[in-house]
Design a protein around this nucleic acid. Structure first.
Lengths: 337, 337
DNA sequence: GTCGTAGTTGTTAGCGCTCATAATTGCTGT
DNA sequence: ACAGCAATTATGAGCGCTAACAACTACGAC
């Protein structure tokens, strides 16, 4: 590991193949106008030497890399994790690698620093998961000559945005509950600085209002099962509650347990709908009816918008809003009067 | 975004500050022997121009980057996701970025290719999550001059390895159940090509054997709640089963639901212990007693071993085995005779 | 036989940085 | 005031690649 011999470079390959380094470069980049025979000789030399092109040199020479920067909060929340893995794989299909910067909080400073580090590496573009305002602020500092896609970000900002239609999802969830015969639906929301939360609240309210149903007070929580549990304990004690829409599945899980402990049955006494369709949602007790966003589609759309920017060289202001679907399972039933 | 002016480079800063580019380099790298006044002038020029150092050029010049390559299977399994985020953050503390390569399968080829791509970028080191044999095979091709840490890999291979002591965890789970008074413990295992699964099976068997308990047949499954559910349906029909150790929490969730549906109560009729302590395990019905590996510690240890290799310039053959702890909740009780 | 042309290959000059080294500066002490 | 020395700063040569252009091959047309 003490560097005894330096790794073979293009010139070494060239020498061995008896051509110029430029020809090697041509072969590597699949340029036309290289005789088949020469190409073969170069290929042979490459494998013989175990040559691997130096990306850094290429980046330096071309001014751009085949790497996409990804910024997200450190967390094991299902959504971001699912988006990341999907994105990495999708990027690979297009010949890009993904460079991840995790930040501990979504405050402006740390997000801006993460972006800055990524830019130092001359990433070809940036995908930022910015579900709260402060993270969006960090994007303001960016010059508009760098390809950028904002996932789950502020819908009011004029940059490329890919997002799940939270409002439509929440609307569907609420309507589904109403359609089952419930007079109204309670909502346990996520942190109120998240756009996701805000959208879900809006959709819930709209569904209620349109249906002429009373809008009960909001039950605020965060995304955790723990806070769902606490909220559930309150819900269980209010006997006019017959239907609840939880802002995500883990919240729903906590609620489920609280209701169970208090002897309120789901769906017989109370109906419940979640959001996210985490892989295990179908195995809750009872299996949870929930809203399923397509995270792979989010990743695909993000990459698409990003590549379009990289290709054309400028912001296009495109947006993609993906409508989630309702997955009906066993946690919803008509109220017993 | 059409590149009208090129980004400022070191020489531009130098010119503005009235020094040589080398002095700028010194300031950037915190070298001593720069007069305070000069340093200030350079700093001023840097901010005035909005200069950002070009990483690629630095990599080219030094032959090494400040980036760590990470290879893992595309998945939303809790363990790998948790390890990744923890690693990314830990790496940052040490001035490293993390470059993620997701692979769709853990077969040798795709893993080897992922590693190869990372090496093209001259990453300073590699962290590979290789929980099955085929992924480990891909590591054999690597020359030993590249820093490497294998997470959850084959314990028999002589490379740096960080792993959770699966066997100890399984042993603790099984013993816990035995200590509650159960005559024996059934085990629902993960995919049998995973080392994690194998270790858990071994630990379970050892605990049983040492206690002189009968070793019941293994119930094979994969990591999913769905397969836990299917297995649980069988378990529920066998009335000599009083205690079950599930290879992970999601499996346990599926089992919980199957048992519930069949009218078998947990823990009154059957006790259950899981593995992983996913954030929501405490909100299952009933709250799940489980084994908690410390994924942050895994990330920390991995980075430590990797940095040691990077520093010293060679493989040290170090290993770290992290003992998980038992988190006792409500899914275990004595059998009623 | 010479010229044009397309197809192929080679040459040169950077990209922006760090390293090794050389040159300069500012202080000592005498 | 000047050698002597350390602290500071400057110079030049790469790192391995690509882009632009130059140059060399055939080969048929004139």
């Amino acid at each position: 590991m003490v560097k005894p011999v330096r790794e073979p470079a293009m010139t070494d390959v060239a020498k061995l193949a008896g051509v110029s380094h430029q020809t090697v470069s041509r072969v590597l980049n699949d340029h036309p106008n290289v005789r088949e025979q020469t190409r073969a000789r170069v290929r042979a030399a490459i494998t013989e030497l175990g040559y691997r092109p130096n990306r850094a040199a290429r980046v330096l020479a071309t001014g751009t890399s085949q790497v996409i920067g990804f910024v997200s909060r450190t967390s094991t929340l299902y959504g971001p994790a699912a988006t990341l893995t999907a994105l990495a794989e999708e990027a690979l299909q297009h010949g890009f690698a993904v460079n991840v910067e995790s930040v501990r909080t979504l405050d402006r400073r740390p997000v801006a620093e993460a972006i800055s580090r990524l830019r130092d590496q001359r990433v070809a573009g940036l995908v930022v998961i910015a579900p709260v305002e402060s993270a969006n602020d960090a994007l303001d500092d960016l010059p508009d000559d760098i390809p950028l896609v904002n996932v789950d970000g502020d819908p009011r900002r004029p940059i490329e945005l890919v997002t799940v239609d939270q409002e439509a999802g929440a609307y569907a969830a609420t309507t589904h509950l109403l359609a089952a015969g419930h007079r109204t639906v309670w909502h346990v929301s996520g942190p109120n600085d998240w756009f996701d939360s805000q959208g879900r609240v809006t959709g819930w309210q709209r569904a209620l209002t349109e249906a002429g149903a009373e809008v009960p007070p909001l039950m605020p929580a965060d995304w955790s099962a723990a806070s769902g549990y606490r909220t559930g304990q309150i819900l269980a004690r209010m006997n006019d509650v017959t239907a609840v829409f939880a802002a995500n599945d883990h919240l729903a899980l906590g609620i489920l347990r609280a209701l169970h402990e208090c002897g309120r049955r789901v769906p017989e006494d109370i109906s419940l709908v979640g959001f996210d369709d985490v892989p295990e949602a179908g195995y809750f007790i009872p299996p949870l009816t929930t809203i399923r966003p397509d995270f792979e589609a989010v990743a695909r759309a993000s990459l698409e918008l990003l590549l379009a920017q990289i290709r054309t060289g400028r912001r296009l202001g495109d947006r993609r809003m993906l409508t989630p679907t309702l997955v009906s399972r066993d946690s919803v039933a008509p109220p017993h009067s």
